[in-house]
Amino acid sequence: MSSDVRFTDFKSDKQPTWCPGCGDFGTMNGMMKALANTGNDPDNTFVVAGIGCSGKIGTYMHSYALHGVHGRALPVGIGVKSANPDLEVMVSGGDGDGYSIGAGHFVHAVRRNMDMTYVVMDNRIYGLTKGQASPTSREDFETATTPDGPKQAPVNPLALALAADGSFIAQSFSSDAQRHTEIVQQAVEHDGFGFVNVYSPCVTFNDVDTYDYFRDTIVDLDEEDHDPTDRDAAEAKIMDDDTEYQGVIYQDEESVPYNERHGLDENMADIPDGAPEDATDLVREFY
């Protein structure tokens, strides 16, 4: 790891095609700053993304990256971390990607507690496919495909994470650059699965959950004298449907990552001594 790396070292030469004003710009900047602040550099970082506006982030960040399929970014990230535990693995996704088709993977990734970071850009809408209701959309949120609203309660990803015995659960706002960076940095530094749900407004298709809305309603837990190690206090905050919270909601300071518990500390990509140099012979021996 480099000690003099800057967050701009994580910027690729590809220009983002997100809509001007999209919350994902701030989300990505905070991710890059958090990686730099923790001493990581592009050569030891692997970014995995799924489908949706958030799925483009691996193209816009200068690191090892993989753009996977819808809802499947987490198992790819877990595979990468298992194969090479020396890598800093950061998975990014959206609320549609992570809490709909990817919800099953999300719950099991949380309970497995692999030492990696999961950042979800939650804009409460499907943005890339032009504005359908997502799993976190409000019950009365009107769209072209749900003119009367989705008629069901939104998914509470923080509650899912706590129920799955998550060891680090946090929430941030992409427009609050300093706090967002601090929170993602804490997730990276956490020994275990660091989960951050990010309020990342969609300025094109969501005129309800706007920057102004979040600025007016967000309560920062650092101003609430909240103890993130108190699970009961965390549950109370998570189940408070009337307040949008920012900060570390729950952290298990005694967390032991899956890869450490099971001795996954060697790079599986290293070819053992005496292995055949010819790949075909190696495959034949394996089978």
Rank of each mutant, 00 (worst) to 15 (best):
Ser2Leu: 03
Asp4Gln: 12
Thr17Trp: 12
Trp18Ser: 05
Pro20Gln: 12
Gly23Ile: 06
Gly23Gln: 08
Met28Ser: 12
Asn29Ile: 14
Asn29Phe: 12
Met31Ile: 15
Lys33Ala: 10
Leu35Arg: 03
Ala36Gly: 08
Asn37Gln: 10
Asn37Asp: 12
Thr38Ser: 12
Thr38Gln: 07
Gly39Val: 00
Asp41Tyr: 02
Asp41Ser: 15
Asp43Leu: 06
Phe46Gly: 03
Val48Lys: 01
Ile51Tyr: 07
Cys53Arg: 00
Thr59Ala: 14
Met61Asp: 05
Met61Arg: 09
Tyr64His: 15
Arg72Val: 02
Leu74Glu: 08
Gly77Met: 07
Ile78Val: 15
Ile78Gln: 13
Gly79Val: 07
Lys81Pro: 06
Ala83Ile: 00
Asn84Ala: 07
Pro85Thr: 08
Glu88Gly: 04
Val89Phe: 04
Met90Trp: 00
Val91Ala: 00
Gly94Ile: 06
Gly96Phe: 09
Asp97Lys: 09
Gly98Leu: 04
Ser100Gly: 11
Gly102Trp: 08
Gly104Val: 01
Val107Gly: 07
His108Lys: 01
His108Glu: 08
His108Gln: 11
Ala109Asn: 11
Val110Gln: 02
Asn113Trp: 01
Thr117Pro: 12
Tyr118Gly: 01
Val120Phe: 02
Thr129Met: 08
Lys130Pro: 00
Lys130Val: 06
Gln132Asp: 11
Thr136Val: 03
Ser137Asp: 00
Ser137Arg: 09
Asp140Asn: 15
Phe141Arg: 05
Thr143Glu: 09
Ala144Pro: 08
Pro147Ile: 02
Gln152Cys: 13
Ala153Trp: 08
Pro157His: 09
Ala163Ile: 05
Ala164Pro: 02
Ile169Asp: 10
Ala170Tyr: 00
Gln171Leu: 08
Ser175Tyr: 14
Gln178Glu: 14
His180Val: 13
Thr181Phe: 03
Val184Cys: 09
Val184Gln: 12
Gln186Asp: 13
Phe193Ser: 06
Gly194Ser: 05
Pro201Met: 03
Asn206Asp: 10
Asp207His: 13
Asp207Cys: 01
Tyr211Asp: 15
Asp216Gln: 15
Val219Asp: 02
Val219Leu: 12
Pro228His: 05
Ala233Asn: 04
Tyr245Lys: 08
Gly247Leu: 06
Asp252Gln: 03
Glu253Gly: 05
Glu253Ser: 14
Glu254Asp: 15
Val256Leu: 04
Glu260Ile: 08
Arg261Tyr: 02
Leu264His: 11
Glu266Phe: 05
Asn267Val: 03
Asp270Ala: 11
Asp270Asn: 12
Pro272Tyr: 06
Asp278Glu: 14
Ala279Lys: 13
Ala279Ser: 13
Ala279Gly: 04
Leu282Phe: 14
Leu282Gln: 12
